[in-house]
Write a protein that binds this DNA or RNA. Sequence first.
DNA 1: ACGCCAGTATTTTTT
DNA 2: ATACTGGCGT
Length: 665
Amino acid sequence: MDFDLSPTSNAFDIPEIDFRAELNDEQFAAVTAEPGPLLILAGAGSGKTRTLTYRVAYLLSKGVRPGEILLLTFTNKAAKEMLDRVEELTAVEGRSFWGGTFHSIGHRLLRMHGEAIELPKNFTILDAGEAETVLKHAVESVDSSFFKNKTHPKPGPLSSIISMARNTCESIERTILAFFPQHHEFIERIEGFAEAYEKRKREQNVVDYDDLLVFWLKLLETAPEVAEHYQNRFRHCLVDEYQDTNVLQAAIVDKMAPHHRIMAVGDDAQCIYSWRGANFENILTFPDRHPGTEILRIETNYRSTPEILTMANAIIQNRTSQGFEKELRAHKPSSQKPFVVQAMDTREQAQFVITRIRGLIDEGRDPREIAVLYRSHFVALDMQMELSRAGVPYQITSGVRFFEQAHIKDLVAHLRLVYNPADVTAFLRIFLLLPKVGEKTGQKLYDHTIAVAKKHEIDFIDALHHPDTIKKAPAAARADFESLAISLRDMKQIADTGSPDEVVQMGIDGWYSSYLQGAYANYSNRLEDLNSLVGFAARFEEMQELIAQITLLNSETSGRMEDSDEAIRLTTVHQAKGLEFDIVFVIGAADGFFPTRRSIDVGDTEEERRLFYVAVTRARDELYVLYPKMNTKGGPSMFLNPSRFLQEISTDLFEPIRIRRNYGW
DNA sequence: ACGCCAGTATTTTTT
DNA sequence: ATACTGGCGT
C-alpha cells in the first residue's frame, strides 16, 4: 500500500461507504486500484463520473486529505457535476478540492504565482473574440496592409493557427505544414505576427485562453520551487475526459505529477476536440509515458437499450484508425430499435419531432428528459422557430450565451478597465460606444489619457475625467465622455473599499444605463440581465476572480429560461457530452451536415464519426435519427443523402420511418 | 482620414 | 442574431 500518510494526518471524517455494494466489479476495481499510473477506459454510459466520484471518496476514506487531490476536467459543467457529486457522497465541500477545468486551475495558479514568470497579478483574460482583435492590431502594426489583400488569411484563421501551435507544443511552421498547408507561403510572416501578438498582450497585461495553459507549464518549468510545492502537495491527480487533452495539457499533467499517481479516465472513441489540438494519441501513449500503468476497462453500459448500443457499436466499429478495442455491453432489457426518419425538408423534420414530443409528453414523459441534438447551431434554427410556433417550451444551451451578450461584455469591460488600466481592449470596447469615436479616435483618446496621467502624476482612471483629457474628445462625444469617466471613477472609489457586487451596481447605475436605454429597444430585458450580474458578483470577494470567472464560464446559459422546468432541451452534440436523456432526437443527420461539408472536403470524417457516436449514446430508451431529404437553405435547393454513418451500417439495426402527410403513426 | 450606415454574408464544435 | 463590407458624408 502506498497510501502512506503524513504523520499529522488522520483519516478524513466521511460517511461510511460500502464500495463493494455500490459499484459493479469493473467500477470497484478502478475505484480501489492501487495509487500509481492508472488508465481507466470507460465507455459511454458506463458510469465514468460515478467511478471518478467514488475514487475521490475512496481516497478520502484512506486518509487522503481533500487538499491533496487535484481534479482536472475539460468543461465547467463536468467540473461542477463532479464536485457536486463528491459533496453529495462524502459531505466534503466541493471547494475543499482543487477541482476545475484546466483553464480555471491554470488561472488560479497564475494569479498566485504569476510573478515568477513576470506576469503581474492583475492581468485580465481575453475571450476568443477579443484575442482575435488584439491579434488583428498586432498584425497591422507589423504590416499595415496585410488584410487589404483578399488572398491573405484573416484574423480568425491566423488566430487558429497560432492557437493550434501552442496547444500542440509545435512550431508555427510545422503546424501550418501539418494542418493549414494552404497557408504555407505565409509561414515567416505568421511567425512574426505571433511574436507581435505576444508582445502586445504583455503590454496590455492580458492573457488569452491558451496562455493560461502555456504559462502554467512555463511556471512549472522555470520556477522549480513552485513546481515542487505543488508536486508534493497534490499527491493524487485525477483527469477526466483524458482523450480530449492536447499535448500541452498532457505535458502539464505529467509535470504536475512526477510521482505518477495519476488516474486518467477517458474513452478514445469519444475524442471530439481535435480542432483544439486534442489528440487521442495522448491516451494511447499514456502507458508509455507512465511506466507501470494499470489499464482497466469499464464497459458495462447502464444507460441505453441493447438496440441503441448495437447501433452505436456498429458506427464506431467502422472507424479507420483503431484505438483501444471496445464493445459496450448492454445491461438494460431489450426494447425497440432506433428510428431513422427521412423528412422532406427541415420543416417537416421539425414537425415530426414536435408531433412525437407531444405524444411523449401525453404519455407522461418528463420534457426535461427529451433532447434534440444537432451538429451545428444553425441546424437548430428551424427547430426553434417551429417549437415556438407550436408552443412547445424548450431550453437551448447553445447559441448566444449569457456572458457573451453585448451588454454583459460592455459592463465587464468597465470592470476590467478599472482594475487593469493597461487593458486597451477593454477601454476601446467601452469608448467606441461614444458617438464619433471609432478605432482611431479611441486609440488617440487612450494615448492622451496616459499622457495626462503621466504629466499630473495621477491614476489613469482619474486622468480620464481631467479637463485636459475631456477636451480632447470629439465635440459630439464630450458630454458622454465626461459622464462615463465619472462613472469609472466612482467605480474605482467603491472598488477600494466595497465588494465586487457594489462595484458592478455602481457601473450599472452610471453612464452605461443611459447608453443602454438609447441603444437597445429591449432595454429593460438587458437591464434585468445586468441586475442578475450583481447577484452573481455577490458570490465573489475578489474582483479579479469575478472577472476571470465570467470569462472562463462563458458557457453558462441565459438566466431567464432557467425556471422553465417543463422545457425540452436543445443542444449541440458537443455540449451534450457527458449528459444523458430518455429520448433523443438527432436532427440534421444528412451527409454534408453531419458529417459537415468541411470534414468531407478535407477527407477526414473520423472525428465526425466519434461525434455521431457520442450523439447516439446519449439516449437511454428511444432514439430518433432524422435527416431532411432536401436542403432549401443557402442557395439552390439540393438533394441530400443520409449521413454516411447511417449508410455504412446494416439496415437491420434501425427502423426506417417515412413520414405520412398527416404526421400520424 | 475617419466614422457611420445600410445592406449583405455567415455560422462547427469550447476554454 | 451578429460581423463585415463598401460607399457616403463629415
